[in-house]
Design a protein around this nucleic acid. Structure first.
Lengths: 177, 177
DNA sequence: TTCCTTAATGATAATAATTTTCATTATCTA
DNA sequence: TAGATAATGAAAATTATTATCATTAAGGAA
């Protein structure tokens, strides 16, 4: 929730032009992969968006914006950090990724699971911030979640989109400190 | 995780002295209430700490540091924002309060429930950030949580301290936008 | 009680994640 | 292919949180 008052609306000096245009990769990534339904959150599915989305699909979980930026920067120096943030926000709005906060001051992102097989939640160490995925009791969880969702949706007139479960504690290393 | 390099270690100018000393309230709050066990996270249970803790005990949930600061500032102008943050961190370390992130860029805090009766979780609106407490299916949740905790603790050698469940969606107002 | 040691505090500066701004570029449609 | 405009990159702005440091207060000793 960072707002601005635009107190410097008067200055209109030209900015440094974009030096690093994004080079199109050999493979036509943009048209090779299926494009997600943008609903009306955006009007164009662009190369940077596809690249970020693709990266999330093929990398391990819980990445911060900065980490994604750094990882992509080698192959795509033309993609700016702001675009990473904007793309993550879009993917989040579209319900394609999940935003998690491990306790350090930054948000982390991961692809949403498409099926029960991949469905997981997190075990978070309060000492070092390590995040461990777990998948235990998924069926029982699903039962309880469905039931709860139904009640909450009706009682509070909510349209429920997702849920999250997490456990906090100390990992082996941090217990001994 | 904001670190500093202390690149200005050379300057040793005196700062403005504390103008607003904290006035002791009429009632001896500090000795009236039971003091929490500080474990070894701190060595003194002070008046500002008691005031913040007391405030959390008697106010509605999900408050940010700034909100707590503003609310207390009327009665206790001597308490600085930094102390609010430090106290919240201490209370969190002691396991007395819970830290939640509603999606806007700030952390929010609430007293931990002492008993099953007060045990609740959150329904969070992705549109406006509103947080609604719910208490449904607490017993079934407890069963599942206990079972999961046991498995996770053993499997990952974790000391589990707490858990969190949350549902995300759109509230009535935000659905219609 | 008064003194002494040192943890805690308030004010402020510093840090860093995220947003905003704006000229430029890329995408899409006609 | 041209025109309209959404998206982007770079940099500046914003803001939550943390660090710094002189001062104050808590708690024990005398």
């Amino acid at each position: 929730m960072r707002k601005s008052q635009s107190q410097t609306a008067s200055k209109k000096q030209p900015l440094t032009p974009n030096k690093n245009k994004i080079k199109k990769p050999k493979k036509d990534i943009l048209n090779e992969e299926p494009k997600p339904d943008l609903k009306n959150k955006a009007s164009r599915w662009t190369l940077p968006r596809q690249i970020v989305f693709n990266f999330l699909k093929h990398s391990s979980s819980h990445l911060s914006a900065k980490e994604i930026y750094n990882a992509l920067h080698r192959s795509y120096p033309g993609i700016g950090l702001a675009t990473i943030y904007r793309t993550l926000e879009l993917l989040f709005q579209l319900g394609l990724i999940r935003k998690i906060s491990s306790g350090d001051g930054q948000s982390r992102y991961e692809l949403k699971d498409q099926n029960l097989a991949g469905h997981h939640h997190h075990l978070i160490c309060l000492g070092c911030g390590r995040i461990i995925d777990y998948q235990d009791f998924a069926e029982e969880e699903l039962q309880l979640v469905k039931k709860t969702e139904k009640v909450l949706a009706k009682k509070h007139n909510f349209l429920i989109k997702d849920h999250n479960i997490e456990f906090f504690g100390l990992c082996e290393k941090c217990r001994l400190k």
